[in-house]
């Protein structure tokens, strides 16, 4: 086993451990830490796949923004964020998850079988794909592709983020965003200010 294989297996094991922790943790803070572990190991796998720019984006956007957002919301909600397990509707949930797991395991079996068949057909050819050019996945080339082939989706994604920010503010603000309520609460203070002034 050489260094690249050891790197892959370590990152893969950490990603699976982090995913299981994120999904199964009773305490959501521990779940967020598991999510962080998975995100960091997936960023490591991006580096092994010659996607340096995406690895940096993964660290900035996921580890820097999304996990922190999760932690903020968990702390805002407080102790109610960790709900005790409830048994209502457990059989239907188990059946649904079991069907999903069976289809996932079926996909994995197909993958392993095709890999074994390819290895049996050509024992020496079933190795890693050929090395890409040295600028593959760097910020230079990917930025060039982004602003030539992906210009329209890029602009659309900026519009999507803008709409999401406005929507998040509008949804999370709650009842105080209602203008009539705001006017009602503002009026007495205004009249009181006038009384004090007179």
């Amino acid at each position: 086993m050489n260094l690249g294989q050891a790197y892959f297996w370590i990152c893969a094991a950490l990603a699976v451990i982090g995913a299981v922790a994120a999904v199964a943790a009773k305490n959501p803070i521990r779940g967020a830490m598991g999510l962080l572990l998975m995100i960091l190991s997936v960023a490591g796998l991006f580096l092994a796949l010659h996607a340096q720019f995406l690895a940096a984006i993964q660290l900035i956007v996921y580890a820097g923004a999304i996990v922190v957002l999760f932690l903020f919301v968990i702390m805002l909600i407080g102790p109610a964020a960790s709900t005790p397990p409830d048994k209502r509707g457990l059989p239907s949930r188990i059946v649904g998850a079991g069907i999903f797991a069976l289809s996932g395991i079926g996909a994995m079996v197909l993958l392993v079988r095709s890999a074994l068949a390819a290895a049996a057909a050509a024992p020496d050819a079933g190795t890693a794909p050929p090395l890409p050019p040295s600028d593959f996945g760097g910020i230079d080339t990917l930025g060039r592709v982004l602003f030539t082939h992906g210009l329209v989706p890029f602009e659309l994604s900026s519009a999507l983020l803008m709409v999401a920010i406005i929507g998040a503010v509008a949804v999370a603000r709650g009842k105080q965003s209602d203008p009539t309520v705001a006017a009602k609460t503002a009026e007495p203070s205004k009249t009181r200010a006038k009384e004090i002034a007179s």
């Binding site: 294989q5 990603a15 796998l45 796949l49 797991a101 993958l111 392993v112 890999a115 390819a118």
Partner: peptide, 19 residues
């Protein structure tokens, strides 16, 4: 060496855990 198949297999495992 690690082939594309191993990465896709890991991806399937992670997707199933999340689902």
């Amino acid at each position: 060496m690690i082939t594309t198949n191993s990465y896709v297999l890991l991806s399937a495992i992670l997707f199933t855990i999340g689902g």
